[in-house]
Every structure is written in C-alpha cells, then in structure tokens.
Amino acid sequence: MRLFTIHKESDEKKMIRQCVDHNPSAQRRLYEKYAGIMLGVCRRYMGNTEEAEEALSNGFIKVFKHIDRFEFKGSFEGWIRQIMVRECLMYIRSKKQSIMYTDTLEDFDTPASFEPELELDTEELLLMIDALPDGYKTIFNLYAIEGYKHHEIAEMLQISVSTSKTQLMRARKILQKGVEDLEESFRTLSNTNHE
C-alpha cells in the first residue's frame, strides 16, 4: 500500500500559473508582491533609486517573459531575486564600463576584529555601501548580502576567484573603517556634550 497526498494548490502557485497565461490581474498582483523587495535589491547594487528602478523594470519584463521556465523547484522569490541581480550586473556592465576588478594583493591584510557598539540605521548603511567603488560594492553585495560563493561570483563577473576574494577584503576594510570612524565621531560628540 502506498500513500499519495493531495495538497491544495497554494495561492502563489495559482498566481504564477495565471501569469504564465498572461492574466493581467495576476501579473499586477505578482508585481505588487515583489516590487518593493526587489527594488531594495537593485538599489544596493545601483547606488541610486532612478537606475535601480530601470533595472527593476527590465528585470520584471524578463520575469513575465520567462515565467513559464520557473519549474516550481525552490522559492519563487529566490528565482526573481536571481533575475534582478543578473539584471543589475548587466546594467552595471553596460553603463559603467570603467569598473576595474583589480587583482593585486599588496595591501591584502585581514581587518582587525570588528565589534561595533553603534547601531546604524538602514539608510546610513546603504550610504556607506554606495560610497564603495563599484567593483567592491558589487562583490560585497553578492557575497555578504546575497550569499553567493566566490567561484559563483567569479563566473558571473568573469573574474578570477582570487580577485573576488581580494575585492571583498578591501570592501570589508573600507566599511569597517567607515563604521569605526562614525563611532569615533559619536564618541567625541558625546564627550563634548558632557563637558
């Protein structure tokens, strides 16, 4: 005797199937569900909202064109997120051709231990990432935020694994210094106020 379980189709699965059939209201629902979080993804890579929106709209066009390729394996959000990240990388490649992914290991040293006391808000963290050079920013986003591995990043950006590692170390170093500087300024300001 074998057991077979019938599950009701989830609302999301139904919505995706309707999008495959070009149902406009389902497409609108899908957009409304994911547009905010995907613009957040694009915003981290692009550095400003206008360019992020351009990447977002191109990404959604691809999502709707190729939604029939989604095989209901893994999360749908993860699938969209992948498309958005690739769209951002393409955008960066096409519009910002001057990005250099250098591979020199000169000042390659491990950052000192980092245990911040100060809690920065999202906007401030985003500004610090925006201030990174494009190459560093991209690799930091891919590795630290999205969770890609160095060999995946190397393949996506067509660079070597060691370049990916170097750039990540430099990005971390800059960010760490930025947070420490901010902490120092707050400390100084607070001491001044006490005096």
Partner: peptide
Amino acid sequence: NNIDKYFKKPLQNLEVTPSDKVWASI
C-alpha cells in the same frame, strides 16, 4: 565575518517603494 553580518541583517530585506513609472514601462 562580523562586518558582513552587521550589514546583511538590515539590508537583506530592504524594501523600497517603486514609482508608478516602473509599472508603466513594464
């Protein structure tokens, strides 16, 4: 890495409301 965690937690689920022109261009 600690610095990764420090940035990842708040930024991973960052949401930004898109303007109407995004849907229009789609």
